[in-house]
């Protein structure tokens, strides 16, 4: 008979402390391209190699639209861009509703909704509960019904078959409510784009307030996004110029 309590006590606290000033533990984030100054031709070549148009030429260098970057890493390498190892990626969209304040800061109920996600986003969203991250210390809880949820965390490009369920879930939520789109697919359809089978992002169906770019965004970035939704984190830039 395995004594799980004893085992876990022996192992001690596995949750990592997190301070913005300290670097993230290795492997926590895949990182993402850093906008750089460079000459025109090199920038054009990089923009050319980017399959989603996330890299755009803007003199004097290259700027990055993180909402499109799918981490294909084709721009990475000796002649390519440097990648930055951070995870504060979540962006508050312009014109969206403000962060949930007040009592939500310490008690936020989140409904995760798979709207056609590949499993990567789901895997990372699952892990925000892993011992290393320990979601509950932030007062954030995952709930299984939208009736109890303050925040809808949407992943996936929103397939046509899930358009109605997504809308229903959003409508079933009580006010005030916010929608967070996680992953490039949920932001604009990602590699799937807009097609006969895919709506091309959550914003096509429900009003999105916060986006968490990444393919997939790592657990740390997701937590940052949830904290941003309650005004406990700062918003990153959606597009960064060199």
């Amino acid at each position: 008979m395995a004594n799980w309590v004893l085992h876990s006590l022996k192992r001690g606290i596995r949750t990592e402390r997190y301070r913005e000033s300290e670097p993230l533990p290795a492997g926590t984030t895949p990182g993402r391209p850093k906008p750089q100054r460079m000459d025109e031709s090199a920038a054009a070549a990089l923009a050319e190699c980017c399959p989603t148009g996330a890299l755009q030429v803007q003199s004097p260098g290259i700027r990055v639209d993180f909402g499109r970057c799918i981490h294909c890493q084709r721009c990475r390498g000796d002649e390519g861009l440097e990648w930055r190892q951070d995870a504060t990626w979540a962006t508050h969209l312009e014109g969206a509703q403000e962060s949930l304040g007040g009592s939500f800061r310490r008690a936020l109920h989140v409904r995760y909704l798979d709207a056609g996600a590949c499993g990567g986003c789901m895997g990372e969203a699952r892990l925000i509960d892993a011992p290393q991250y320990n979601l509950h210390r932030y007062g954030i809880f995952i709930t299984s019904t939208p009736r109890d949820a303050d925040l809808l965390l949407v992943a996936g490009p929103v397939t046509e078959a899930l358009r109605r369920p997504l809308l229903d879930a959003y409508e079933a939520m009580p006010e005030p409510k916010r929608v967070v789109a996680m992953g490039v697919c949920a932001i604009n359809g990602g590699v799937f784009g807009k097609s006969f089978a895919s709506c091309g992002g959550a914003a096509e169906v429900v009003p999105v307030d916060i986006v968490i770019p990444g393919c997939p965004p790592p657990p740390r970035a997701i937590i940052e996004g949830l904290l941003l939704a309650v005004g406990r984190s700062r918003s990153a830039q959606a597009v960064e110029a060199p």
């Binding site: 996936g156 397939t159 078959a161 899930l162 799937f192 089978a197």
Partner: peptide, 10 residues
């Protein structure tokens, strides 16, 4: 197939 994204077609 609620998550059908039609990858083979696109």
């Amino acid at each position: 197939f609620y998550k059908y994204r039609g990858i083979e077609k696109i």
